[in-house]
């Protein structure tokens, strides 16, 4: 028996809107730790990792570990039917072939339940070690989204370079080139507008902007985004989900031939 009650149901709506275009089908894993997902996009260059810790739910009952295969597009369609202020409860029976999403309005005057069929999904689970990154950039998520969007009108790839001077986002295309440099800005009175660069070693990596733009669909989840870089490793773009967890995107770098 599984029963997870999330008072801030809008978080789940936002998570689904962020990942449904990147990943079609995925297994949601439920354990005593929390509700999690790890899934790759169809071309196996990007990976989504979601964790919603059990402590973040108002009620969390998971009698035994359960893996539920879901079509994310269909799940997003159902969650779209929940109001932004609704409380969302996810329910499933052990060994059952469906999951129920229950939506309660804040004053309990409307209760809806949507039942969705589960599916069997064969997925490869990657073992991602905890890594010390050479450079970690924390910046406003809206600024990062704006940069990725702007650069994708000029080129297909972005070169992200972190040096002592700041973080540089560069692209080039048929019509010309573009460079955007963000310097460290530790705004004390507005921490959500800060840009903080922690750098052990200068690092420069190239990524496909198409994926970066897809990751920025998670912008409504968090005011800040963390971009972690190490030479010859996938970048990690992380959006914190309040105090309860995170949505991380991993993207393999492009290597010059």
């Amino acid at each position: 028996m599984l029963e997870l009650r999330l008072v801030q149901g809008s978080l789940l709506k936002k998570v689904m809107e962020s990942i449904k275009d990147l990943v079609n089908d995925a297994n949601f894993d439920c354990s005593a730790t929390g509700f999690s997902l790890q899934a790759m996009d169809s071309s196996h260059v990007a990976l989504v990792s979601l964790l919603l810790r059990s402590e973040g739910f108002e009620h969390y009952r998971c009698d035994r570990n359960l893996s539920m295969g879901m079509n994310l597009g269909n799940m997003a369609k159902m969650l779209k039917c929940a109001g932004n202020d609704d409380i969302v409860t996810i329910k499933a029976d052990d060994g059952g072939d469906c999951v129920t999403f229950m939506f309660e309005s804040p004053n309990q005057d409307k209760i809806a339940d949507f039942e969705m069929k589960l599916m069997d999904i064969d997925s490869e689970h990657l073992g991602i070690p905890e890594t010390e990154y050479e450079a970690i950039v924390r910046m406003p998520s809206s600024e990062f989204a704006r940069i990725c969007k702007d650069l994708s009108t000029i080129g297909d790839t972005v070169l992200i370079s972190v040096t002592k001077e700041g973080v540089r986002f560069s692209t080039k295309g048929d019509i010309g080139t573009a460079n955007i440099v963000c310097r460290q800005n530790t705004s004390v009175d507005k921490p959500e507008e800060a840009t903080i660069i922690e750098m052990e070693t200068p690092v420069s990596l190239t990524f496909a902007l198409r994926y970066m733009n897809s990751f920025t669909k998670a912008t409504p989840l968090a005011t800040q985004v963390t971009v972690s870089l190490s030479s010859e490793l996938p970048v990690v773009v992380e959006y914190k989900i309040g105090e309860m967890g995170y949505l991380r995107f991993y993207l393999a770098p492009k290597i010059e031939e």
Partner: peptide
């Protein structure tokens, strides 16, 4: 001019 790497080239499969 770039080749796109796959994630499996970096991380092991569990």
């Amino acid at each position: 001019q770039f080749s796109q790497e796959k994630l499996q080239d970096f991380y092991g499969v569990n």
